[in-house]
């Protein structure tokens, strides 16, 4: 039920993001979702790709500082209050969200949201208990 996310340390200077995407493109790796967290000095680029193990390897070989982190991809009903319902479940279970971001997705009735929480297994159990669908890694990579 866990999805492997690739994170890359980027200095805030021009051309770095382009460089990452070029390396991935040259290696035939497709980006499924991305988010950037940034401060005045640096940023962390988070990526969901179709082949995380290879993405990790090629980026590392290209000289980037890379790490792999487990996250969960949750299907959220695409209607007002959809996300609120998911967040309420996590809140009830006292699970802190470190960050979340939405998926780039082709037309569909459901939205996908990526969550990073400290206690992944507890979060998965709490969400599944409420009938919320969590996508497996294979499903996500193949999207």
């Amino acid at each position: 039920m866990k999805v492997k996310q690739i994170s890359i340390f980027l200095e805030n200077k021009s051309g770095r993001l382009a460089q990452v995407t070029r390396v991935l493109g040259d290696n035939g790796i497709n980006i499924r979702a991305l988010a950037i967290a940034d401060t005045t000095d640096f940023g962390i680029l988070r990526l969901i790709v179709n082949d995380p193990d290879r993405a990790y390897r090629v980026l590392k070989e290209a000289g980037f500082t890379v790490s792999a982190t487990d996250v969960i991809a949750v299907e959220v009903v695409d209607e007002p209050g959809g996300l609120a319902g998911v967040l309420a479940v996590l809140q009830e279970a006292s699970l802190n969200i470190e960050y979340l971001y939405a998926f780039l997705q082709k037309a569909s009735r459901a939205a996908l949201v990526v969550f990073r929480v400290e206690q992944l297994d507890e979060a998965i159990a709490a969400l599944q208990a409420k009938g919320i669908r969590i996508l497996s890694g294979e499903e996500v990579y193949a999207l």
Binding site: S7, F9, A37, T39, F42, I44, S67, E98
Partner: peptide
């Protein structure tokens, strides 16, 4: 390197 800004800061 950590995936979260807070830890890096």
């Amino acid at each position: 390197f950590s995936d979260t800004v807070r830890k890096l800061e």
